[in-house]
Design a binder for these strands. Structure first.
Length: 633
DNA sequence: GTAGGGTTAG
């Protein structure tokens, strides 16, 4: 891992414009011409009422156009468009296509297939417009066999020369990750393709993780539009190559390409994952400067970004200012509050959510249970877990068990947590055992901890973290020969060691440190600062705890290894460059070790600084010698 | 009337 990864964070350096992609063309009918392009359900009902008032409900054309408007409304319930279709006298292919389109976008897209075969039997004709809708439905429930059948119909009925149909086919196969088939359609008639065909291929390669192929395609495309760019950016971000995604976004802006909602949402998500507050803020300020609307997706991505970048205050501000909120937005806010240890606020928000009549999802409960755990609300946590299953019919997933095990473990109810794990219908994953092991360690249940630790190593012998956990509990039990044995086992098996890093932003650049890092351009100053900090902490009575260092080396060297953990280098660097009245914000990929946690607390006490540290699973707000996690993590 | 891209999770 290179350190001092310098990446200028100015995604909007040029005067490129932002645009929202317009929704599909609104169907035209004189009476319905005032219906907005993406109407809300009430607006749709208003339009319907107009038709009733003017006595037009018997007009096939008017009703079919109303149905066309339904397809552009995301909140119209399926029974409504079925009812409209049922009122149309001798429905023609236009009406049938529009119902197909409505169904394809509904929660049960496969209904459009049922409707298609039924209307064919009833003698309603198909035309070239029929298949893009039908294939869209197939793409949303990607079952290869059904789409392949539709493909056969396309060929049989002679629509395989239509560009829109071909593109829908490419998209369908790409959605099913059947890239060989996509390529076949794509290459069949090279003259019958356009930028949409290329974009569908690009998305397919990105989805199947073939980033290098996608990259090559992107480079070689005869023409690119905003969707090509946002698809490629998404490919990088979803493939975990976040920095490349951010870089391409900047290039997109610099080239003067219209920035679309998908690109914004994707780069906000990348900033969130990397914890790049300055980068995220810059994207936000530009969204504001260019009057880009805070849509549901953009608002949610902002709420999530601010929470993940350590600024729960700004996250709340965006959430409160959102013109409308859906369950995604609420989930992001509830989960954000919970990871910041603000359990009470998260539960209050959940209550508001319920009061608004919204239905929680399984993700909502991850946030709620997590909030209970962080606030030590054992009884409430049990109650919500029960309610999730019984009142909302949500099957508990591994994440929910994780929260409950954490909740019980934190409260010292380790045997109850163990019982819960053993009674699960799905087999517990290593993370769950790791959570329980953590509880054993905190509460001094060393024998049980050792048993679990051994189980973990057995479950996944290639994961170095498990050996570290097991060795850690042996160390706590002062069984030094076992510590050495486990450490040897780890190196003999050649486990995959995940390199730990800490990242800090300063004045538009990102600085990444690994343990013992000497690559940073200010390295010598960083070490001098670290030494100074060590001296001051020593005077204040801080003693490094070397029990978490597992290397088979002398004590003095152990102290050395621990004093060069990546978070300490980042803290030292933060002390050098971050204004004294601002918190030092650090993002780590792994969990913070016990001693670095203590070190961070001491720094805030001795130097009067504030440190916000995001580790592998939560936030630590260090202030005046204390941490928001109350020393349990 | 048509096709392509996106957000939440221990």
């Amino acid at each position: 891992m290179r350190s001092g990864l310098s990446c200028r964070c100015s995604p909007f350096s040029s005067n490129a414009r932002l645009s929202l992609r317009r929704s599909s063309t609104a169907p035209h009918h004189p009476i319905l011409s005032l219906v907005p392009t993406s109407p809300s359900f009430p607006q749709l009902l208003q339009a319907h009422a107009q038709l009733v008032v003017r006595g037009l409900t018997a007009s096939r054309a008017a009703m079919a156009h109303l149905l066309a408007h339904c397809a552009l409304c995301t909140s119209a319930p399926p029974h409504y468009f079925h009812a409209i279709y049922a009122r149309i006298d001798r429905p023609n292919v236009f009406a049938a296509n529009n119902l197909l389109r409505c169904l394809a976008r509904s929660a049960a897209p496969s209904d459009s297939l049922l409707f298609y075969s039924r209307s064919r039997r009833a003698g309603v004709l198909t035309n070239n417009y029929t298949f893009p809708f039908l294939l869209q439905a197939c793409s949303r429930t990607p079952v290869v066999a059904e789409g392949a059948q539709v493909h056969a119909h396309v060929v049989k009925l002679g629509f395989d020369g239509d560009l829109y149909v071909r593109n829908a086919l490419i998209h369908f196969y790409s959605s099913c990750c059947e890239m060989d088939e996509s390529e076949r359609v794509f290459n069949e008639f090279p003259e019958r393709r356009d930028v949409v065909s290329w974009n569908a291929m690009l998305a397919g390669y990105a989805r199947t993780g073939r980033i290098d192929v996608a990259e090559e395609l992107f480079e070689g495309m005869p023409e690119r539009d905003a969707i090509s760019w946002s698809t490629m950016i998404m490919g990088y971000v979803q493939g975990g190559i976040l920095e490349k995604g951010l870089k391409l976004f900047r290039e997109m802006v610099d080239k003067g390409e219209m920035v679309n909602e998908a690109a914004l949402v994707t780069v906000l998500s990348a900033s969130a994952q990397l914890g790049l507050l300055e980068n995220g803020q810059f994207i936000h300020s530009n969204i504001k400067a260019r009057n880009f609307p805070i849509t549901l997706a953009v608002g949610t991505a902002l709420v999530d970004m601010y929470a993940k970048c350590g600024s729960i205050k700004l996250s709340k501000q965006v959430f409160d200012g959102m013109p409308q909120r859906d369950v995604f937005a609420w989930n992001a806010m509830v989960c954000g509050l919970a990871t910041h240890g603000m359990g009470k606020e998260a539960l209050e928000l959940f209550q508001r959510f319920l009061n608004e009549g919204l239905r929680p999802t399984s993700v909502t409960f991850v946030g709620v249970l997590n909030a209970c755990s962080r606030a030590g609300l054992v009884a409430e946590g049990r109650q919500y877990f029960k309610s999730m299953i019984e009142d909302y019919g949500i099957e508990p997933e591994m994440e929910h068990y994780g929260c409950i095990v954490d909740l019980l473990g934190r409260a010292g109810l380790v045997s109850e947590a163990l019982e819960l794990i053993e009674g699960m219908s799905v087999s517990p994953d290593p993370v769950l055992w790791g959570t329980l092991l953590g509880a054993c360690k905190i509460h001094g249940l060393l024998d049980l901890g050792i048993t679990i630790g051994n189980k973990l190593v057995e479950l996944d012998p290639s994961h170095d973290g498990h050996y570290v956990l097991l060795a850690g509990i042996y160390a706590k039990a002062r069984k030094w020969e076992d510590v050495i044995r486990v450490r040897r086992l780890m190196s003999n098996r050649g486990t995959n060691k995940v390199a730990g890093w800490s990242l800090i932003e300063a004045h538009g650049s990102v600085h990444k440190f690994v343990a013992g890092d000497r690559e940073h351009k200010d390295s010598s100053e960083v070490y001098m600062t670290l030494e100074m900090i060590g001296r001051r902490l020593g005077e204040a009575g801080y003693m490094p705890d070397v029990s978490s260092v597992l290397h088979d080396i002398g004590d003095e060297e152990k102290v050395h290894a621990i004093t060069e953990h990546s978070e300490r280098l980042a803290i030292a660097f933060g002390m050098m460059v971050v204004d004294a009245d601002l918190p030092i914000r650090i993002v780590k990929n792994l969990r913070v070790c016990g001693d670095c946690h203590e070190f961070s607390k001491m720094v805030t006490k001795v130097f009067g600084r504030e440190i916000v540290m995001r580790d592998g699973s939560r936030f630590h707000h260090f202030k005046e010698g204390n941490c928001s996690c109350l020393d349990y993590w």
